[in-house]
Design a protein around this nucleic acid. Structure first.
Lengths: 222, 222
DNA sequence: TTGTAATCTAATAGC
DNA sequence: GCTATTAGATTACT
């Protein structure tokens, strides 16, 4: 059990999720209320809808249950499990890089980290540059399923709003703030620059770019 | 001269400044009158006062003169030059990212941009979203000196009024509208949220939410 | 080395 | 002014 990569991965997932879900084991009802979760999503959820939009799964709990399973700790089985906890079948399943990967020791969270991340990015404003020990978030890797799903959504709309991002979060198991970052990076890398105003392609642009809308941005395929 | 980053930087600064100072080469007297510039600044100008508050320097002109100097174009030398034109010593001196950095071609300003920016932000309300060629402002980077100065002022007073901001503008060479934005962003990032009343940390967080200002405001001045 | 998650910040829009 | 969000740049890690 010393260097089990799968175990490390699950532990790391569970611990990393605390960044985005500091309020541990938040009841599903509260979570749904918090997100103001709707049942209606136009078109971009039609084909990948693995989970019926009943309850927002408690991702941290799911991951911990998976951890219990691997550790052999008895626990009650839950039904639904988002993509993040669907393991096997992939060498690059969602992984989090930890500093001391061999130890199962709990990652110590700074108070900043714990008080961060509620619903919006604005709540995550760092109070003070303060000390040098910034302790940035550990890099997480998403598995092929998750990546493919996000890529597909990206082709539909590179600018998903908060509600859509929460939907992606429910389906993929990736916390909404991570989804936000994923789309940001994706846009930065694969979206045509504003200096390229040609190619008025198809009517993909559902979400609007606030300033330099630049009309037809060619983000095909991805 | 093709890929001189310093040249690019100065050119970009000069062109970018047109956003904030569309009335080119405004005489200093007019500028001072426009700003209603005072001689008195309580405490927060005591240690960084590089320039005596004589005349509000024409920043655009200074930058253009610097450009002339680099280009070898003869010009009359001027005395004062704010931080923005103090170059060297820093890899991250005030820089503007241009799309075609190798070309010295003039950035084309939209009519909106030209009719914007007079004295207050209220005047900058965009008339109409108009055409798709929005062409937003290029991102500018401030050098360490400028940033440190603004940070210092921020600790003294996160809510500087217009007169103070104009003072900062004179000292740093950053246009007042940019300073306004800088403080807005700074507040959004580093000011404690009202929902987070703990973490009194060090004395940096003097700021309060503007709504409940009243009575004993902790910061002097202004 | 490449790809990409994460971070930081100037800028914009709506309220 | 605040909130939210974007682009752009950079950093770090695999």
């Amino acid at each position: 059990m010393e260097n089990d990569p799968e175990l490390d991965q699950v532990i790391c997932n569970a611990l990393s999720l605390q960044d985005d879900y500091p309020d541990l084991y938040l009841p599903s009802s509260d979570h749904d209320k918090l997100l103001g979760f709707p049942e209606t999503f136009p078109g971009f959820l039609s084909d990948m809808e693995l989970q019926p939009p009943l309850h927002n799964p408690n991702i941290l709990q799911d991951t911990l249950l998976e951890l219990y399973s691997i550790l052999g700790i008895p626990h009650e089985t839950k039904a639904s499990s988002p993509m993040a906890t669907m393991k096997g079948e992939e060498p690059t399943t969602a992984t989090c890089i930890e500093d001391q990967p061999t130890t199962g020791s709990k990652r110590h969270f700074t108070t900043e980290e714990l008080e961060n991340s509620k619903m919006t990015r604005a709540d995550k404003a760092e109070p003070i540059p303060s000390t040098s020990s910034q302790k940035s978030r550990k890099r997480t890797l998403y598995n092929k399923q998750q990546t493919l799903y996000l890529q597909k959504q990206f082709t539909f709309n590179p600018y998903p709003d908060y509600v859509s991002r929460c939907s992606f979060s429910r389906i993929t198991g990736i916390p909404e703030p991570r989804i936000q970052v994923w789309f940001q990076n994706r846009r930065a890398r694969y979206l045509a620059k504003a200096s390229n105003p040609q190619k008025t392609e198809n009517a993909v642009m559902v979400g609007r770019k606030p300033t330099l809308l630049c009309a037809g941005s060619p983000y095909p395929s991805v």
